[in-house]
Design a protein around this nucleic acid. Structure first.
Lengths: 195, 195
DNA sequence: CGCCCCATGTAAGACGTTACATGATTGA
DNA sequence: TCAATCATGTAACGTCTTACATGGGGCG
């Protein structure tokens, strides 16, 4: 399958297109107006990214002429695209990901329910929880080690990071509880339809 | 003057060199072993970055031959480098910075005390606190708006972001209290150190 | 008519990643 | 002597940023 690496922006696009077909312009507006403002809404990033995804066979574009507007290309996930998205979502959370910043993990989680089903969401949460539980003692150790040598602002900065991870760990527990509370009534259908 | 933009890695290097002179290799080790592991320790990033800083006159390198080791270039901040670092640190915190992820703000804060004095640390904290206080209601609004349309995992992801910012806001308050508790002194001296 | 919004795209440049290259010194 | 570690660097490549380009449609 597409051996090429896909950028974070690429996965964000796949995830959004999985929710509903959209044009490049629509996607830009999502990035610029919703909580996903951390992703670039610049055309110089999005249009090339869409082209790459299309060349990899992960999305398909169809040109609309409706309503006399300018040509407008609406993209949809292919079955391969859906599979790639699912594989990305269900990857276990690694230490490197946690260190680099959890935003990619959160992106995966945000799409997980619709794209890979509730079990995938729960799996991701468990994986994140496990990794955080292993990583936090490490940070506490560093705080203890550096206490003598670091200036006040330096150790406070470290403290901020620790608190952030602790909050995140608590959140994973609460989120797991949320899923446990909900009976799995609204079960997403997970098997790809034939096209 | 150095009108050129400086990357986050560049500022991280300036901040570390402000604390003590170091070689490229030393800096790589700091990135790969301490809590600053979120920055790249690859030579392909660090050596070019150091060269750019040198070309901009922000650091100066001197070659050491001591102890029969291979040539080793130790870098130091110039006065211009120190000024640039200070100007970066004392910039007010913007909304864009908060959205993009607070790691650059935390980097500024971590260096603030040594590089720009305690007043700068307090200033940064106040600026961050103000920006967070303005931004959080915005996120709460988005959560309320999206409650109906978002899947469980999506709204939980947003919830995680909100909690993260709330934790950060609480941290700024605690950090300000920490500075307020400590008697004013331009230089931080640990109680063990003699003056 | 002029201006702004929709909608798509390209071009130049900067930066980071990965992989490779080089060479000296230390220790098994 | 051979491997590992110290120490510095380059080259190819991909991606993002910024800025610019294009063109139709609605509106005052």
């Amino acid at each position: 399958m597409s051996g090429q690496a896909i950028s974070k922006l690429g996965y964000a696009l796949l995830g959004l297109l999985q929710a509903r077909p959209a044009s490049g312009y629509d996607l830009r507006k999502i990035f610029s107006t919703t909580a996903m403002t951390s992703y670039s809404d610049s055309p110089g990033a999005i249009y090339p990214a869409l082209r790459r995804l299309r060349q990899q066979g992960l999305i398909r574009g169809s040109i609309e002429h409706g309503a006399g507007l300018r040509r407008r290309q609406v993209f949809t996930l292919t079955t391969e695209g859906a599979a790639e998205l699912k594989s990305w979502i269900t990857r276990p959370v690694t230490r490197a990901e946690v260190i680099r910043g959890v935003d990619e993990v959160m992106l995966r989680f945000a799409f997980s329910e619709q794209a890979a089903g509730r079990e995938a969401s729960v799996g991701l949460l468990k994986s994140l929880k496990a990794e955080l539980t292993l990583y936090l003692p490490n940070l506490h150790q560093q705080r203890a080690d550096g206490k003598a040598t670091m200036p006040t602002s330096g150790s406070l900065a470290l403290e901020s990071g620790i608190r952030g991870y602790e909050t995140l760990l608590q959140w994973t527990k609460d989120a797991l509880a949320t899923f446990a509370r909900q009976p799995y009534a609204s079960r997403q259908k997970k098997k790809g339809a034939k096209s």
